[in-house]
């Protein structure tokens, strides 16, 4: 009997953690994009000596 209860808790926690993994993946994607944009900004600043238009 107890196995069933433990199994339910495991399933629920597993699914919620998988959900967390999806959120983490999307965060990773966004942080990559931020990284890229900051590099573009840095290059623009060194090349033209003027900051990009606000």
């Amino acid at each position: 009997m107890n196995d069933y209860i433990v199994a339910s808790f495991v399933v629920v926690w597993f699914v919620l953690l998988m959900y967390l993994a999806v959120i983490a993946m999307r965060t990773a994607k966004m942080s990559r994009e931020v990284e890229l944009l900051s590099r573009v900004l840095a290059r623009g600043a060194t090349e033209s000596e003027i900051p990009p238009a606000p």
Partner: peptide, 26 residues
Amino acid sequence: LLKVELLQRQMERRLSSIRLALEESA
């Protein structure tokens, strides 16, 4: 979970608007 994901969507949109602005200024 609702708050976290709403935050994420908001961030995604902000980010893409920043990218758009950068592309235009480039």
